[in-house]
């Protein structure tokens, strides 16, 4: 009974679906039960819109507060929160905007939102651990077939048909006054946080492809097949940048249980 009441209450808040009026009464100041309930709807919408504004500050600056807030409100109305933490709300905001007709006037917005989500994710992720080169040297020599890389939790990849990193950068305080960003080139970016600060780094096609591959298949052998001789250059670079933060040995006998090193 409590479960059904709570389901109804939240549907009323999010979708405006009627709740049994008998359950609620007008308040002592003369406001009707329906209007009292609306105080919660307003508050929930305001909380979620504020969360989006905090996660996507550059996008809000880029399109203007009025446009962004209206967009956020539409998103909130169509996407009730199903996450526990407010920090996790709004992952699909970029996808929503891609398909939302008014956003066609600002075609750079979805990529900018995707970049900000990646930045936000890196900001809150676990701190990186130092890569154990000595253990890796031993494992690579003796058990290369079982070696699988661990990518940093903070790492995200974003590709765009324009310099979305420059668009982001020109909204930062350190950007020189009056200088226009040059957006005229496609870009492939790695977003990660090797230490205190989040980095947005343009990478070349080969590095991007390597990281895309590792996200799908983190095994050393597959990586060697993909990169050929270039693995000797690209792999150390990925470790040095902190994109790869560790490795594990796949356990042949006990499938699914890995030995982390």
């Amino acid at each position: 009974m409590l479960a059904e009441f709570q389901r109804q209450f939240l549907r009323a808040i999010y979708d405006g679906k009627p709740i049994s009026a008998a359950q609620l009464q007008a308040n002592a100041l003369g406001r009707s039960a329906e209007h009292c309930l609306m105080a919660y709807s307003d508050s929930v919408q305001a909380t979620l819109c504020k969360a989006l504004a905090e996660i996507y500050p550059v996008a809000r600056q880029f399109v203007g507060e009025r446009f962004f807030d209206a967009l956020a409100m539409r998103y909130v109305q169509q996407h009730p929160s199903e996450v526990t933490r407010l920090d996790d709300y709004g992952e699909t905001f970029s996808d929503f905007c891609t398909g939302f007709e008014p956003v066609q006037q600002v075609p750079h917005l979805p990529a900018l939102l995707a970049l900000e989500w990646a930045w936000h994710r890196a900001f809150h992720s676990a701190d990186s651990q130092a890569f154990d080169f000595a253990a890796f040297a031993v494992a690579a020599e003796q058990q290369a077939g079982r070696l699988r890389f661990v990518l940093s939790d903070q790492l995200s990849l974003v590709a765009a048909g324009f310099r979305v990193d420059q668009l982001w950068l020109c909204h930062q305080p350190q950007w020189p006054d009056g200088q226009l960003p040059d957006l005229e080139a496609p870009v492939q970016l790695v977003i990660h946080r090797p230490g205190r600060e989040v980095f947005i780094e343009p990478v070349d096609a080969e590095e991007f492809s390597m990281l895309e591959h590792l996200l799908a298949d983190p095994g050393l052998e597959g990586l060697c097949d993909l990169l050929g001789e270039n693995v000797a250059v690209l792999l150390p670079r990925a470790i040095e940048h902190g994109w790869i933060c560790g490795f594990e040995l796949e356990n042949d006998e006990y499938a699914g249980t890995d030995q982390s090193v």
Binding site: L2, A3, Q6, R7, F9, L10, R11, I13, Y14, Q23, Y40, S43, V44, T47, L48, A51, P80, S81, E82, V83, T84, L86, Y89
Partner: peptide, 17 residues
């Protein structure tokens, strides 16, 4: 208070009877 049902989270401090 309660904040969430088995469907949605309100992120709001909601009262109980």
């Amino acid at each position: 208070c309660w904040c969430a049902s088995d469907e949605y989270n309100s992120h709001e401090l909601l009262p109980l009877p």
